[in-house]
Design a protein around this nucleic acid. Structure first.
Lengths: 208, 208, 208, 208
DNA sequence: GATGAATGAGCGTTCATTCAT
DNA sequence: AATGAATGAACGCTCATTCAT
C-alpha cells in the first residue's frame, strides 16, 4: 500500500531534516541521536529502523544536499542558456559558481553542513543522481571541453577554485568578515578567472 | 617562590602538550579529559585547577601554536633578509608563505589543529607575543608598505590568500589529493601573485 | 477447513523449529523474538499469535523434544526386542540408555537444549504422547518390573542414573573433556550397573 | 593511606556480594549491572572502576567462591585428621565430599551459583589460592596417592564423582526432589565407593 | 596544591510488545 | 489471520565534574 510507504518516506525525511539542522548548527559530534529523534518527533528506536547510526545519516545528507545544490545550479544554467549564449566558457563557469554561491548565501545551514562535511576526496567522486549519474568533476569537465582553449591539470585547477570559493564564502556568508558577500564576489570571480588563465595552455602559433 | 611557579608552569605545559597531540590526531570532540591527564601523567582533578574545560585548552593552544608558527616564520625571514635583499615585496610574501607551508608539511598535527580551529576572525586579531604584540595582519601590512606599489582592500586580499593556502594545503598535505605538495606549490604561488596583482592599484601615469 | 488449520500448524512448527535451533546454539537468554521470526520467515507480530513469549516456546519445546527422544528410544527397543530376548533387565536398561546417549551424540543441539532446560521435576512427570500417555518413569518402571529382582526406592535410583548420564554426557559430548564418548561409555555403564545392584533388595533365602 | 584502600575493598566486596546474590537467584544473563550497583548501593559508574563487565565479576566470583568452598573443606579435614586417622582413603574422600555437600546445603546461593557457572573445564584447572596454588585435581590426587591401592584414569573417575555429586545435590537441596538430602547421602556415598572400586586396579597376585 | 575515587546524567543501541493496516 | 512499523523502557557503558583526603 502506498499509504504506508508514504508515511515511511515522511519519517525518514523528518529524521534527515532534523539531523541536517543539528549537524549544520552544532556539528555531527555534538549532535546526539536523542536530539535528532526529538527534532523529528519520533521515538528513539525509530531512528534505527532507518539508519545504522548518525554517520549513515550524514552520508545520506551529503549525497542528497550536494545533489540538490548541483541540480538547482544545473537547472538555473539550462534556463539561462536558453536565453543567451554565454560569451565564453569562463563566463559559464563563473555563472555556475555564482549560482552555487547564491544558494549557499540563501541557506547558511547548507553552507555550514557542506563545508564541515564535504572533503575534496568525497566531493570529487560525488555522484549527481539526476544528471546521468555523472559526478561533479564531469560537469566542470564538460563545460571546459566546450571551450576552444586547452587546460592542463584540470583536476588541480578545479580543486583550487572549489577550495577558494568554499573557504572564502564560509567566512564571508556566516561571519560577515572581513567583508560582505557583495564585496567579495567581484574579486573572488576575478581570482577564479586568473586561475583559469593560469592553467590555460597557450599553443605555439603555427609556423607558416 | 619560583620553584613552585615553575612546577605549575610545567604541569600546565604538560596538559597543553598532551591535549595538542590528542586534538590534532583525534579531534577535540573525540578527546576526553581523562585522555589528556593520562597523557600528561597527572591526576584528573589537576586538569580543573588549570582549565575550565577542554575548550579553554583549545583556545589557549590556538594562540600558542599560531604564535610558534609565525615566530618561526618571522625568525626565518629575518635570517634570510640579512643575507640578501629580496627582489620584490611579492617575493617576500611568497617566501613567508612558503616558510609557513613547510612548517605545516613538517608537522601534520599542527596543520590539522590550526586548520580545524583557526577561523579568520580569530586569526586576523591574533597577537604574536614576541613580536612587539603586533598581530598577524600587521606583519603582512609591514611587508606590503615596504613596497613602492599600492594595494587596495588589503585585509580582503590577505584573507583570500590565507584561505586559499589553508584550504589547499590541508587536503594536499594530509590527504595527498589531488596532487602532492611539490606539485601544488608552483601553481599555488602563481595564484597568490595573481591575487596580489589583482589588488594592486595602478596609479595614473603622471602627466608631464 | 483443514487447509487453514494446516497453515497454522505449519507456522507454529516453523516458529518452534527456528527457536529450537537458536536456543540450543545461543541459549534462551541470548535469543530474541526478532531472531526467531526471522528464522521462521514470519512477521514479528505473528509470533504473538502463537506464543505469549519465548519462555512459552521453551516449555513447548521441552515437551516435544523429550517426546521425540523417548519415542525414538522406545521404537528402537521394540525393534531390538523382536529379534532377541535380552539377557537381563540390567541389559535392557543399559541398552535403552545407550540409545538415548547415541541420539544426544548425534544431535548436540538436542543435548544442549535438554540439559540446560530439563530439570528432574519436569522430567519425571513428562508425558510421552504416543506411548499411552505414560510418563518416562513408567517406562523404567515397566522394564524393572519385568525383572525377577526387587528394587527399593526406584525413583531415587532412576534419578541418580539419569543425572549421572546427563551430567557426564554433556561435558563429554559437547566439550570432549575429560575423555571422548567411546572412552566414557564402558565406565559409565559399569557405574549404572553398580547403582542398580546397590538398590537391589536381596531377599532372604526361603527356609525349606 | 589505608583508609582509602579499605573503602575500595569494601566497595569491591559490596559489588561482588550483590552480584553473587543476583547471579545465584536470577542467573547472569538476567542480571543487569544496574541491579548490581543498586544492590551494592553505589553509582553505576563505580561498577566500571572495579570491573570490565559482569562477566569479569562472574569469573572473580567463581575463583573466590570455589576457593572458600575448598578452603573450608580443607580446614575441616585437617581438624578431623588431628583427632583420628581415617580407616581408608575412600573414607577420606567421602568425608571431603560430605564436607562440601554440607556447605552447599547450608548455602543454596553457593550451590546455585557454582552449578550454573562451574563447568568441568573450569573446575579441573581451578587454582586454590591458599593451598600452595594447587588446583582442585591435585587435592584429590594427593589423597589418592596416600592409598596403597592403584587407580586407573584418575581424571575420568573424579569427573564422574564430581558430576554425580553436583547434579544430584542440585536437585535434592534446591528442589527437594525426589528425596531429601539425608535420604540421598547414604546411596550417593555408596555409589561413590562403587565408582572408586570400579577404577581400582587389581594387581595380579604374585606367583610363588 | 594535588589527587583519584565516586558520581550520575547521558550516550548509542536493542528488543519485547503493540496496533493500525 | 497476518503483518511490520513504531514505540519507549532498559540495557551496557562513558565521561565531565566534584570533593574528601
Amino acid at each position: 500500500m502506498g499509504k504506508i510507504d508514504d508515511k515511511k518516506k515522511q519519517k525518514k525525511a523528518a529524521l534527515l531534516s532534523a539531523a541536517y539542522q543539528l549537524f549544520a548548527v552544532k556539528g555531527i559530534d555534538n549532535t546526539s541521536v536523542s536530539e535528532i529523534v526529538q527534532g523529528a518527533k519520533l521515538a528513539k528506536g525509530t531512528f534505527y529502523l532507518y539508519f545504522k547510526d548518525k554517520y549513515e545519516v550524514r552520508d545520506s545528507l551529503i549525497a542528497s544536499q550536494a545533489n540538490l545544490l548541483f541540480e538547482r545550479a544545473s537547472r538555473q544554467m539550462d534556463y539561462v542558456l536558453q536565453e543567451k549564449e554565454p560569451d565564453s566558457v569562463e563566463d559559464s563557469i563563473i555563472y555556475l559558481i555564482d549560482t552555487v554561491v547564491d544558494q549557499l548565501n540563501d541557506s547558511p545551514n547548507l553552507l555550514r553542513f557542506i563545508s564541515k562535511n564535504l572533503s575534496w576526496g568525497v566531493f570529487s567522486k560525488l555522484q549527481i543522481a539526476d544528471l546521468d549519474n555523472r559526478n561533479c568533476m564531469d560537469i566542470f569537465d564538460a563545460l571546459l571541453s566546450e571551450s576552444n582553449k586547452k587546460y592542463r591539470q584540470k583536476e588541480l585547477m578545479i580543486f583550487m577554485i572549489v577550495e577558494l570559493v568554499n573557504a572564502t564564502c564560509y567566512n564571508v556568508i556566516l561571519n560577515h568578515v572581513p567583508v560582505e558577500l557583495d564585496e567579495l564576489k567581484p574579486d573572488l570571480y576575478n581570482s577564479i578567472r586568473n586561475i583559469l588563465h593560469q592553467f590555460e595552455v597557450k599553443e605555439a602559433a603555427p609556423v607558416i
